[in-house]
């Protein structure tokens, strides 16, 4: 399976930043500081369970 990580990142960005470009940059920076670089993942990226678990935790924190 592939593409889940990008999908989860996009969902976090949509929830917290809408279409606001400045906010998108801020949220991306927060993700990178947490250790996940959105630019690294696309639809073909392997669904790494460790990254998915981290993103699930982040989504809980970022999108309550």
């Amino acid at each position: 399976m592939a593409g889940k990580i990008k999908q989860m990142i996009d969902a976090i960005l949509a929830r917290r930043a809408d279409d606001n470009e400045l906010l998108q940059r801020v949220i991306k920076t927060k993700l990178i500081l947490k250790g996940i670089n959105p630019a690294k993942y696309d639809e073909q990226s392997f669904d790494d369970p460790a990254i998915i678990a981290r993103l699930e935790k982040m989504a809980q924190e970022l999108c309550r």
Binding site: R16, A17, L23, V26, K30, L33, M58, E61, L62
Partner: peptide, 15 residues
């Protein structure tokens, strides 16, 4: 400081 900033960042978009 990293942990506090991380926790704040999760709560709000305010810088």
């Amino acid at each position: 400081e990293e942990k506090v900033m991380d926790a704040i960042g999760d709560k709000t978009n305010v810088i």
